[in-house]
Design a protein around this nucleic acid. Structure first.
Length: 641
RNA sequence: UGGGGUAUGGUGUAACGGUAGCACGAGUGACUCUGACUCACUUAGUCUAGGUUCAAAUCCUAGUACCCCAACCA
């Protein structure tokens, strides 16, 4: 039977243009699995229903409990955003719960700075883990004592043993697909393993001297089952538990227990963990074996999906860390980075990111997504929401010869109405100063225009946005023939930007182009940073035609950042553009913490794109980051020739 | 070489044995005080080869391509 689509619950989710009834999005495979669980029996099927203690909103509804479990070893990137949107979205759509959990089992790589940044980014994306669909904030390290007890239980059941092989030796004895692995410690008596494991915990042994291993199958074709390590010795301080522990659980041992203790129903992870699923299940079965039904621990279901991959982007934490450490970029939130923090600084709105994730969907197909899809999502969002303003990136001076002058020779100033956002009439208008000395964009003037260029050139008339029609009458040039300024005349009858109808009711005359401009005397000078992709190869570091692997750093785009130091900006931006601070609060150990999140204002600089105010700004020297350009069919046509 | 996965227009996806649909992109045109937005039209696809069936993207067989796995990382 075909699965019925569900209505899109998120009102801001993208809808096809012009479609009258919003098309329900077909359910993706994870939603189908959940529906099958719910349908699999009475009372919510496989996972039962929420107890009444969960309150009226949830009580009696089928249990769906998801989580986002990052390791705090770096900043979150756009790939994590997919997991966050997926897991939180599932909880939201099924009236379930979403946990934030730090999988902090390796103190050698983890830092508090990363914990803080992850909390900030997850909240910013709207996955409020303590809100309506929130299940709470958790740390794997809070379960270390329980994990230890479970491990002892496995030793007692003969399912785990202390192995004194070095990492090197284990590797040598790993075997091949047809040759089993070996360990001389495999049949060590239970009592001996118990004693050694206690000694490991007590700190009596050095890093690397011994491990606790699960006794599974040394001949398994799945190498994850060849007696995987459960615990290693690591004399290292942990950002959450300090020096309480010197043995730390490995991912496979820890993860299922974390999910189980939190009552997670659907443990969603990426495809590369598929080979780990038998282990995930084995550990929980091993714990439950021989236990009374009432004492058995919960067994969540692991489900894998394909992670997000972008062309021209590097998304592995290891490589991102390297770019930060080698100062290839200016930190984790350098606007060219694919991190959540960078997208926020660059001016992406979380809703745009969520819309994008809805668009690309959730499957098991490993596909490459064109980065322009994300940019489209940003354009779509800001087109509806960003106030419009003007900025001249590369100024060319325009003098209006017939503009009225004051007694001292300076041009008079006129305040004109500027429409804040044509897409949003409610945004209204504001005043903008106009005068006889202006800046226009250098590329909007050509002395010898090519075909189809309908901007300013000698003899042509154009409109200045919301101002006047002007006509170029002459140009000034320097010694080498470069145009340094242009002279125009204006038509006073076109005030506001429209020509009046003719005296006998003829239709008003039209101009082909509308240019953006800034009054020279009023211009606010600021810095504008333009970005191009960080890498020039579709798949940075991938083997070329010769088959030789390259370092991904060789594929860096040397022109990824262009700084325009003296752009001319609408003076109202001096006060209007700010990096706002939005706050979210979280509760940890009964204490409420306020989390400030910097959220830059974003404007459309007409005809140029969307721009976000940067935290490097001062009142008199603003700095803007271009979030994304506008579509530019002229540039495309011009490039084609 | 063994095990585990995945193949649908240029890209991302839908289909659950019964009309290959949607979105993005691209192209053309309309509209336009942003060469933006919006609107209309067009474009183009089931990895290959066999088989089962009245009917196959879907089921079967055999290939091919790509991804993951032999850390005391997650």
């Amino acid at each position: 039977m075909p699965h019925a689509g569900r209505p899109v619950l998120n009102p801001d989710a993208p809808t096809p243009h012009g479609a009258s009834p919003p098309e329900p999005r077909p359910k993706h495979f994870i939603e189908q699995i959940i529906d099958e669980h719910i349908a699999s029996g009475p009372s919510g099927g496989r996972w039962g229903v929420w107890p009444t203690s969960e309150g009226p909103a949830r009580a009696g509804k089928p249990r769906v409990h998801t989580r986002f479990p990052p390791e705090p070893n770096g900043y979150l990137h756009i790939g994590h955003a997919k997991s966050i949107c997926l897991n939180h979205g599932l909880a939201r759509d099924y009236a379930g719960k979403f946990n934030m959990r730090f999988d902090d089992t390796n103190p050698a790589k983890e830092e508090q700075e990363y914990v803080d940044s992850i909390i900030r980014d997850v909240l910013w994306l709207g996955a409020d883990f303590q809100g309506e669909f929130g299940g709470g904030l958790f740390y794997a390290s809070d379960y270390f004592a329980k994990m230890y007890d479970f491990a002892e239980e496995l030793i007692r059941k003969g399912k785990a043993y202390v192995c004194e092989l070095s990492a090197d030796e284990v590797s040598k004895r790993r075997g091949t697909p047809s040759v089993p692995a070996t360990s001389p410690y495999r049949d060590r008596p239970v009592e001996e393993s118990l004693r050694l494991f206690a000694e490991m915990k007590a700190g009596k042994h050095n890093n690397g001297s011994m491990t606790l291993r699960a006794k599974i199958d040394l001949a398994s074709p799945n190498f994850n089952l060849r007696d995987p390590v459960m615990y290693r010795i690591l004399h290292e301080s942990h950002q959450h538990t300090g020096t309480t522990w010197c043995i730390y659980p490995m991912y496979d041992w820890a993860h299922g227990i974390e999910d189980s203790l939190e009552g997670i129903t659907h443990s969603v992870c990426t495809l590369e963990f598929e080979n780990h699923r038998p282990l995930y299940d084995w550990f929980i079965h091993a714990i439950n074996e021989g236990r009374e039904p009432a004492n058995r621990i919960h067994h969540p279901q692991q489900i894998e999906f394909a992670k997000l991959r972008f062309t021209y982007v590097v998304l592995s934490k290891r490589n991102l860390l390297r770019m930060v450490e080698e100062r290839t970029v200016h930190g984790w939130d350098d606007p060219r980075m694919p991190t959540i923090a960078a997208y926020r600084r660059r001016g992406y709105h979380p809703q745009a990111i969520r819309n994008f994730m809805e668009e690309v969907g959730v499957t098991r197909i490993e596909s490459w997504i064109d980065l322009t899809r994300l940019e489209n999502a940003a354009r779509d969002y800001w087109n509806k929401h960003a106030p419009r303003t003007m900025c001249v990136l590369r100024p060319l001076r325009v003098t209006i010869d017939n503009w009225p002058r004051n007694a001292d020779g300076t041009p008079t100033v006129e305040m004109l109405d500027f429409v804040s956002n044509p897409e949003d009439p409610a945004a209204g208008t504001r005043k903008i100063p106009f005068s006889g000395e202006l800046f226009i964009e250098r590329e909007d003037f050509m002395e010898v225009p090519p075909k189809k260029f309908f901007r300013l050139s000698p003899g042509t008339e154009v409109r200045l946005r919301w101002a006047y029609f002007i006509k170029c009458v002459s140009v000034e040039k320097d010694a080498s023939g470069n145009v340094t300024a242009v002279h125009c005349t204006y038509d006073p009858a076109t005030r506001g930007g429209d020509a009046p109808p003719g005296p006998n009711g003829e239709p008003p005359r039209k101009v082909k182009a509308t240019l953006h401009w800034i009054s020279a005397a009023h211009a606010l000078t600021g810095e504008v940073r333009l970005f191009d992709r960080l890498f020039k190869a579709e798949e940075p570091g991938a083997a070329g035609a010769d088959g030789a692997k390259r370092d991904f750093m060789e594929d860096l785009n040397p022109q990824s950042l262009e700084v325009i130091a003296d752009a001319k900006l609408d003076p109202h931006l001096r006060d209007a553009a700010q990096v706002r601070t939005i706050t979210r609060s979280i509760v940890e150990h009964g204490v409420t913490h306020t989390i400030p999140i910097p959220q830059p204002d974003v404007f459309q600089f007409e005809r140029l794109g969307y721009f976000a105010i940067d935290r490097d700004s001062t009142r008199d020297k603003p700095v803007f980051n271009r979030t994304v350009t506008l579509k530019d069919t002229w540039a495309k046509d011009a490039a084609k020739g």
